[in-house]
Computed example of a mutant assay.
Amino acid sequence: MKSLNRVEISRSALIHNFEICRQRADGAVLMPLVKADGYGHGMIECARIFAEQGAAAFGVAEAVEGVRLREAGITQPVLVLVGVVPQTLPDIVAARLTPVVTDASILPELSRLAGAKGIEIGVHLKLDAGMGRQGVLPAGFVDLVQAVHGSAHLRLDGVMAHLPLADDRQSANSDEVLRTFLKTTAALADCGHGTCCLHLANSGGLFYVAGARLDMVRPGIALYGYYPDGAAGAAAASSPRLRPAMRYLTHIIQVRHVPAGSGLGYAHLFTTVRPSTIAVLPVGYANGYLRTLTNRAEVLVGGRRAPVVGRISMNLTLVDVTDLPEPKVGDEVVLLGRQGQEEIGADEIAGWMDTISYEVLCLFGQLNPRVMVD
């Protein structure tokens, strides 16, 4: 049995987006972010595709994600970006993951565990160059570098920071963060440290911040087909353009004909003003199609837009198809993606939900059966 709801992920779109990021990287290697289950696109499947295209490393949030990648046969370095705490260190060492270190407190135990395995673990340091969220401040950077050098079984492989306003092309903040990062990491030479991978650019940094590419870039949302500044970025993009990789579809399970004056759904938040044809869809907030889309969203039926009407339920959504030609039970309905000449993108849905495309993709991709196509 298959669900009536399905998320389709386009392999060709993922490859296309990877190549665009590679071209923009200007010689820097790519570390795709596959955390959050590949932004809802499937962590393992996406990592395998990106590995085939030449990914140099991968970024995950927690160690458990990195372990899953290793079990799936991914051999590239896997950086654990958050959640490097004492209870995760044994798995990090056993799976030969690369921890991103924010302070020296973790180093003694990490070195001890590596020594017990008879191996050396490479680490990346996280510098807070202006993000204000996590990492060592510039004043403490040299001390942290020296603490790594003083750990018998650890090796400093890289230093990273993050850009807080890379999606705002009018802000001078990214240039300031870049200057702080380069000035602070220049101290590596004074510490007697040789080759070290420096990386700062997320998708916004890759597309919009001159000079931020450095040795490695960390694209996330761009790999999945969306611009970091949303619809504005998509409108301003030049060719070749990113291609959304996710399509979310369902099917009509009932077609109802109701008179004018009919209240629809919980709380009767929509009342028909004419005799109406209503299509019932087996999708709701349990599938990531949130209640905030009530009376706001549109879907595609037969290649044409139709409005969502009435409150979205846990497993049911109503659509007004009065103006469409003879919709039938079993007809495909597209909630996200293209059907015919029409398309509904994650940026548009994010506008209806008062959020960003990242959240839309994670919700839809993680709460529905998913299949890789083409």
Rank of each mutant, 00 (worst) to 15 (best):
G115C: 10
D167P: 10
L107H: 04
D91H: 05
V373L: 02
H257S: 12
D168T: 10
K328V: 02
L110M: 12
P240T: 14
M31Q: 12
I106V: 15
D331Q: 06
I349N: 06
S238F: 05
G118R: 05
R243S: 10
R241G: 03
V299C: 13
G220S: 11
G27A: 07
L290H: 13
V64D: 12
R241K: 13
R256A: 09
Y358V: 12
G42K: 14
F18A: 01
H41Y: 13
G192P: 04
A36Y: 04
A267I: 07
S151V: 01
T184Y: 09
K183Y: 13
T272R: 06
G135T: 14
P282T: 07
A28T: 06
V85G: 01
D157C: 07
F270S: 14
V321P: 00
L89Q: 02
S262K: 02
V209P: 05
T180N: 14
A13M: 04
S174H: 02
E52L: 05
P259I: 08
G42H: 12
M372E: 13
A222L: 00
P77N: 04
R241T: 08
Q170P: 01
G158T: 08
G233Y: 00
A166Q: 07
G220N: 02
G211N: 09
I356A: 06
P32S: 07
V78H: 03
V299A: 08
R218H: 12
L361N: 12
Q53W: 10
V7Q: 00
G130T: 10
Y39W: 11
A306W: 04
P138G: 08
Q87R: 14
I252S: 07
G337D: 03
E359V: 07
R304M: 14
L200C: 06
D229I: 05
V217N: 01
V177D: 10
K2C: 04
Q339A: 15
G345A: 03
G66R: 07
I278F: 00
P327L: 13
P32L: 08
L127S: 03
A28H: 13
C362D: 11
R256C: 12
L81S: 09
A161C: 11
P164W: 14
R179W: 02
E332F: 01
L69H: 13
G284P: 12
I252D: 07
G365T: 05
R370C: 14
V321Y: 02
P228I: 06
